[in-house]
Computed example of a mutant assay.
Amino acid sequence: MKPLFVTGTDTGIGKTHVSCRIVSTLRREGLDAVGMKPVASGCRATPEGLRNEDAEALIAASRWTGAYETINPLAFADPIAPHIAAADAGTAITLAPIGAAYALLAAARAPVVVEGVGGWLAPLSDTLMQADLARVFGLDVVLVVGMRLGCLNHALLTARAIVEDGCRLAGWIANRVDADMPRFDENLATLRARLAAPLLGVVAHGADATDTLDLAPLRR
Rank of each mutant, 00 (worst) to 15 (best):
T46Y: 10
G66A: 01
A101N: 00
V23L: 10
A86Y: 04
P182I: 13
A197F: 10
G116F: 03
E164G: 02
R28F: 05
T7C: 06
D78F: 11
D88A: 11
I22A: 00
L105R: 03
L124W: 10
A179T: 08
M181R: 09
L152C: 11
V112D: 01
H154F: 07
A45W: 08
A110D: 04
A106H: 12
L74G: 03
P123V: 13
A216P: 14
G206C: 10
P123W: 08
A100R: 14
V163Q: 08
L188W: 08
V117K: 07
C167E: 03
L215N: 06
P123M: 14
A108W: 07
N52D: 10
L156Y: 03
V145P: 05
A216S: 15
L152Q: 13
A100N: 04
L139S: 04
K15H: 05
V34G: 04
R183P: 00
A189S: 08
E29A: 06
A131T: 09
P79S: 03
R44Y: 04
G12E: 13
D180H: 11
T65R: 13
A67H: 11
C20H: 06
I59G: 01
L199C: 09
E29N: 12
F184L: 15
A161W: 04
E186Q: 14
R192T: 09
L121I: 07
D88M: 15
G35E: 00
D185Q: 13
E29P: 05
